[in-house]
Write a protein that binds this DNA or RNA. Structure first.
Lengths: 212, 212
DNA sequence: GCATAATGTGAGCGGATGCTTGCATTTGGC
DNA sequence: GCCAAATGCAAGCATCCGCTCACATTATGC
């Protein structure tokens, strides 16, 4: 389960952005958490097509009115879930990059790939559903910054290992990893070790390293 | 623009499959084409969220009742568009594979990659929108067969060039190409030559070929 | 020309869903 | 204990959208 950081459900949604209340008492914080947890549960078990505000409120054991006191729109709920996921993923990757820094390209690639796969491993269904939702939602600034941060971790890793044109290479490596992970997960694979090896092979192959 | 093959708008949709009329007169064939063209236009210009049956009928200059005489559901229209796209793509790849067969791995990879990119080049917006729709739609048997056929073209190409475990390798190569193409197109790139080179690099790198 | 089949029409039904609003209940400071 | 602020509630409004149906128009065979 994701840990929700309580980063003000407001401060998002630019177009229909009507300010909403910020929870002050413990009671209302519990309500917000119940709403996010219910939304995650629905996404995980039934996918994003089954998610609507009435159902979220029902599963959360909260009235629809309470939901709209804290989340101005359905998208605000989804954006909050996505932000929490990206935060966790970013922090995990940053820690992995820090630990592996200086251990050589192969080790560093491995560390970053492992961090991203760990993310999917925790809750494959939810992670997959959230990524699908993310594609068709305008990113809020905070989530965009997190994604940029993850990209920068890859760029820095490449530069530490003397690779030129790192930003463009990072773009492609991320795309390659995404492509392989998406295809494997969509095909129902759950062998993350095998997937890890294939992503390593693709990444190092793209970088022109001799095969291991 | 896609050429619609008039492969019986019926013969799809297994669950709510109510037989519908098959066009006999030229008049009704024109109606069907107008409906498919209108749906493609909407997808291309406004994306799949903006597509609904009322709007399709309006853009096609046809009444909503006429639309439902030939297409039992909204999904049947989309499935027909997807089928036409996959047919064209498959035929294009098959022709490319035939011409390039025996010219060596690098040439054959190039030919197949070029065929798939040509497909996107014709109408990037429509191709992109259709692939998004395809992901969340149950494939009809004919489309599934076309996709399987394309996969087989890649497997055969690999086996012609002495590569073992071809089916698994083909799966990964397709995923890699998809990942790179999706990311580039989503980022607004329109330099298909550059994209072609990067996909070649990724594919040959995965296969462990020395860099060119 | 006429009968019949084929095709075209659009008002509107039924249901889903995002969200508002008016009111009830609980909490915390004094 | 009291009151104002915070929180909670759910009926139901407004809209969208997939789709039907009863009827009008056009083509085809004879």
């Amino acid at each position: 389960m994701l840990a929700f950081g309580h980063s003000h459900p407001n401060a998002m949604k630019n177009l229909p952005l009507n300010p909403r209340k910020v929870p002050r008492q413990a009671r209302s914080r519990a309500t917000c958490d119940a709403i996010l947890a219910a939304a995650a549960r629905i996404l995980e078990r039934q996918g994003d097509e089954a998610l609507n505000t009435n159902r979220v409120a029902e599963v959360a054991g909260v009235s629809i009115g309470s939901l709209y006191q804290y989340y101005p729109t359905k998208e605000a709920i989804l954006a909050e879930l996505i932000r929490a996921m990206r935060q966790q993923m970013h922090d995990d990757m940053a820690a992995a990059a820090r630990v592996a820094a200086g251990s050589g390209l192969e080790q560093e690639v491995d560390a970053l790939v492992a961090a991203t796969l760990r993310h999917h491993l925790r809750n494959p269904e939810l992670a997959y559903a959230l990524e699908i939702v993310e594609e068709r939602l305008p990113l809020d600034a905070e989530t965009a910054a997190l994604k940029q941060g993850m990209r920068t971790l890859v760029v820095d890793m490449l530069e530490r290992n003397g690779i030129t044109d790192a930003p463009a290479i990072a773009f492609d490596l991320i795309a390659i990893g995404h492509g392989l992970a998406d295809a494997a997960i969509a095909a129902g694979e759950r062998d993350f070790d095998g997937l890890h090896r294939r992503i390593r092979r693709a990444v190092l192959g793209y970088l022109g390293r001799p095969r291991l």
